[in-house]
């Protein structure tokens, strides 16, 4: 890792010097922030708090044409969209959202099959992280194995200092990204590094909420059939926002658009909060109600993911809490498990 510094007034120049990539930056949209492809370096709002939607859709788009195909007398003509995937930069991603990409890797790249679309986009994406100096009220990344200055999954890591940004180049991909911009970077001093440490500490001290995950998975399994899950999901209206906005959720549907002669196969985000998601053709549904569907969300994130990949499926971004129209709060739910009176002990 090599550490540099760039002055604030040169940041736009650095952004403009990145060529050959679609550069996604946090931009302002009303009172929210949204990652969008940069048209002008001035669009980038690096002082943002959190984007309403995580930038995972750069790598796992909400709608993605997998292939176009036509029936021919002797088979199909398939035009695979894999051949047209470009190169991307996610510039200014927060630690939670970057860690979520590491989590998505466990799902999409591990196991018997590799998802080739995800793999290609992931390979073609360079991740520039931006340390968080001020958490939101519902942020709890520190409780789930990370922290506001965590660098996991970053190719380059930026920290905003008073007079510039500390630029840590972590991987070869990061090096390649900045190859044309080296003249904008200066050396960093010990004072900069100690300022970074100071900011980290100050930020950590600002966290309000936390989860204690130790032993929770076992406890949750003990009370799998408890009415607790009905009680905590009581208000849910099944809108799916908590999953659609979650940086680690990966569930998708595959749909065809077109006629019987030619068509398009599209992958679209789906949600375990919708009844059709699991409904069998016989109309039997293994998760018939919101109790079962919300329970699936909590268990997938806090039990199954850990069992399968030794990584929680929640990075503590707090979006599902901030955006749920009925105020279902994953921190309260997971913490509340400790107080449930039933289950085998």
């Amino acid at each position: 890792m090599t550490t540099y510094k760039i002055s604030k007034d040169k940041m736009n120049e650095l952004l403009t010097s990145i060529k050959g990539y679609d550069v996604y930056v946090p931009t302002e949209m009303g009172d929210k922030f949204q990652f969008r492809v940069m048209k002008d370096a001035g669009d980038a709002k690096l002082g943002y708090s959190q984007s309403a939607k995580p930038p995972k859709d750069v790598i796992f788009p909400q709608n993605e044409v997998l292939m176009n195909y036509k029936i021919q007398p002797n088979g199909f003509d398939v035009e695979n969209s894999l051949d047209h995937i470009g190169k991307f930069v996610i510039f200014g991603i927060r630690n939670c959202d970057a860690r979520a990409l590491k989590y998505l890797d466990t799902q999409m790249l591990n196991g018997k099959y590799v998802d080739p679309y995800y793999a290609k986009r992931r390979e073609n994406t360079t991740v520039v992280g931006l340390a968080c100096n001020s958490p939101l009220y519902n942020c709890f990344c520190r409780s789930v194995g990370a922290g506001p200055h965590h660098k996991e999954g970053h190719d380059v890591h930026l920290t905003e200092l008073d007079d510039g940004y500390l630029v840590e180049v972590i991987t070869d991909k990061g090096k390649e990204l900045l190859a044309n911009s080296m003249s904008l970077l200066a050396g960093s001093s010990d004072a900069d590094t100690s300022k970074q440490a100071e900011l980290k500490q100050a930020c950590e001290a600002k966290f309000v909420r936390k989860i204690d995950v130790k032993g929770n998975d076992k406890r949750m399994l003990d009370i799998f059939e408890s009415d607790y899950w009905r009680d905590v999901s009581d208000g849910c209206i099944g809108c799916g926002i908590c999953t659609l906005l979650c940086p680690t959720c990966f569930c998708f549907d595959i749909q065809d658009i077109g006629s019987r002669k030619e068509g398009q196969r599209v992958r679209v985000w789906d949600s375990c909060q919708y009844p059709e998601y699991t409904m069998h053709a016989s109309s039997h549904n293994p998760r018939p109600g919101k109790k079962e569907r919300q329970r699936q969300r909590f268990f997938h994130k806090y039990v199954y993911s850990y069992k399968n990949n030794q990584m929680l499926g929640c990075v503590g971004c707090g979006r599902c809490i901030n955006q749920c129209p009925t105020q279902i709060d994953i921190i309260d739910v997971i913490e509340g498990v400790k107080n449930v009176k039933e289950g085998s002990e």
């Binding site: 099959y113 569930c251 998708f252 699991t278």
Partner: peptide
């Protein structure tokens, strides 16, 4: 049997 889409352990729904 559970409802399935991808068949390859990616889409999430058959767990």
């Amino acid at each position: 049997e559970n409802r399935m889409k991808c068949g390859i352990g990616k889409c999430g729904r058959c767990n």
